[in-house]
Design a binder for these strands. Structure first.
Length: 446
RNA sequence: GCGACCGUAGCUCAGCUGGUUAGAGCGCUGGUUUGUGGUACCAGAGGUCGCGGGUUCAAAACCCGUCGGUCGCCCCA
């Protein structure tokens, strides 16, 4: 048992419920983002290292110690994407997407960060991503946040998640505030924890969300961004908050909320939960007006967010397990061949999900058929082959009828009706299959 | 990079202060039911006790190392 192959640290293999949770998050995003006109974008999973190194900020942890970077065979340094925004911005410039005007884009897929894994944090993790590129107005921030809120609601986790909102101001506001913070914390350097003393040099803003008890007391009296906001920055934030109120997006002001990556301006936000241990951030982002310009493009305002699929997946209720509609159980080769045509017709014509159970003894086949989630089973053996009939068993009711194979349409019709009832949430009682068939036979006869 | 905890059957775990052939539940295979499941009963297969070394008459249990996992710090989705 010790020679089993092992997975790379911090990667996951999902089946069954875990896979269903993951899929449900992805599917829900695909549905909701269309409601807001966000179009799908597909970008590479890796880029030239410079794409990330320059855009995220050389001193950030993501760049300085968490990137999956390696040389390819030609000696170029390439990096597995640690996030989506830099790659999308690069694609925007590479392909001249300015021609499309304001773009609302959505992406999904794996990202990579070389970190110690823990709850809600992995080396290969997966994100949902939404960006609005080319729009400077706070109405775009509102739309983007509304999308995020809507997604959270559709996933049924809104009760556990709150939106924390802050502004980092424009570059003037931000650097004035940063200078004031630096002066303030330098004055109390000795009272700061070890980690925060290091932050003082690297990224003083981060001291604001220190978890150290002693730091928190200092942070409480630290300079607040509001006192450094330029008139424009203040107006932007006011427009944003009133827009959110108008759109019915609930938010909480958190003046100590900062974002780790260098490119953020103005809006910064996190949807957080306390139900996930130490990794409470489930969806987060902000405005990054300077990024595309810094990458060598024209001045292009933009806002975006990313959400952690695994984190959302841990939060939602378990989705209904996957299953098929119908189990086909042939008793011998002849029945198997006959049934193949029948099954193909049901799949292609009726959209019926069918799984065949031909291995093991009868009891085994029934057990597996039952576990497949199928409502009905079609059983064909030598007896049935003789007179072109089949046994149709309702696996929920336990009732079974022997009917002509020519009546396969009833099977498709019954399953279609069940689907319809499930879809409309109409809980009208559908009888078991034998009774349903008798009823519809009668109806047709007249 | 730092810290804490954990590592026994396919899975989840029990195994008290070291003492003979290492257990349970679930799952798997077969049977009660020669072609009928989801409930029940019976039987069976399946374990280098993560790996290496040490202490001891004796180690799954104690010590050291190592690898792996989990959670936390840092940082972040």
């Amino acid at each position: 048992m010790s020679n089993k192959p092992s997975a790379i640290r911090g990667t996951n293999d999902f089946i069954a419920e875990e896979a269903a949770r993951f899929d449900h998050v992805v599917d829900t995003f695909a549905r909701v983002r269309r409601l807001y006109g966000f179009r799908s974008v597909h970008i590479p999973v890796f880029e030239h290292t410079g794409v990330f190194a320059r855009s995220l900020g050389e001193t950030t942890d993501v760049v300085s110690k968490e990137m999956y970077t390696f040389e390819d065979r030609s000696g170029d340094s390439v990096t597995l994407r640690p996030e989506f925004t830099a790659g999308i911005s690069r694609a925007y410039l590479s392909n001249g997407w300015q021609q499309h005007g304001v773009m609302k884009l959505a992406a999904t897929g794996p990202c990579f960060r070389y970190e110690r894994p823990q709850k809600g944090r992995f080396r290969q993790f997966h994100q949902l991503d939404a960006e609005i590129i080319g729009s400077a107005g706070p109405d775009s921030d509102v739309e983007l946040l509304a999308l995020g809120q809507h997604l959270i609601e559709e996933l049924g986790v809104a009760g556990n998640v709150t939106l924390q909102l802050n502004t980092l101001g424009d570059p003037e506001s931000r650097s004035a505030w940063q200078a004031a913070l630096l002066a303030y914390f330098n004055g109390h350097r000795d009272s700061l924890g070890e980690d925060s003393q290091r932050r003082l040099d690297a990224n003083p803003l981060r001291i604001l969300d220190s978890k150290n008890e002693g730091d928190r007391a200092l942070v409480a009296d630290a300079p607040v961004i509001d006192d450094f906001l330029t008139a424009e920055a203040a107006a932007f934030f006011a427009a944003l908050t009133s827009g959110l109120d108008a759109a019915g997006v609930a938010w909480t002001r958190n003046p100590r909320l900062v974002r780790g990556l260098d490119y953020y301006r103005h809006t910064a936000f996190e949807f957080v939960t306390d139900a996930l241990g130490a990794q409470g951030t489930v969806l987060a982002g902000g405005r990054y007006d300077g990024l595309i310009e810094a990458m060598g493009g024209p001045h292009t305002p933009a806002v975006g967010w990313a959400a952690g699929i695994e984190r959302l997946a841990m939060l939602i209720d378990a989705p209904a397990p996957e299953g098929v509609d119908l189990a086909f159980i042939p008793m011998d080769d002849a029945a198997s061949a006959r049934g193949a045509r029948l099954v193909a017709a049901l799949r292609k014509g009726g959209g019926v999900a069918v799984e065949t159970f031909a291995a093991g003894n009868m009891k085994k086949r029934m057990t597996r058929a039952s576990a497949s989630g199928a409502r009905l089973a079609i059983i064909i053996g030598a007896d049935e082959m003789r007179d072109d009939t089949m046994q149709v068993k309702d696996l929920v009711a336990g009732e079974q009828v022997r009917i002509p194979q020519a009546e396969a349409g009833f099977v498709g019709g019954y399953l279609a009706e069940l689907r319809l009832v499930a879809l409309t949430g109409h809980d009208g009682d559908v009888p078991d299959f034998p009774a349903w068939r008798t009823r519809n036979l009668g109806g047709q006869a007249r």
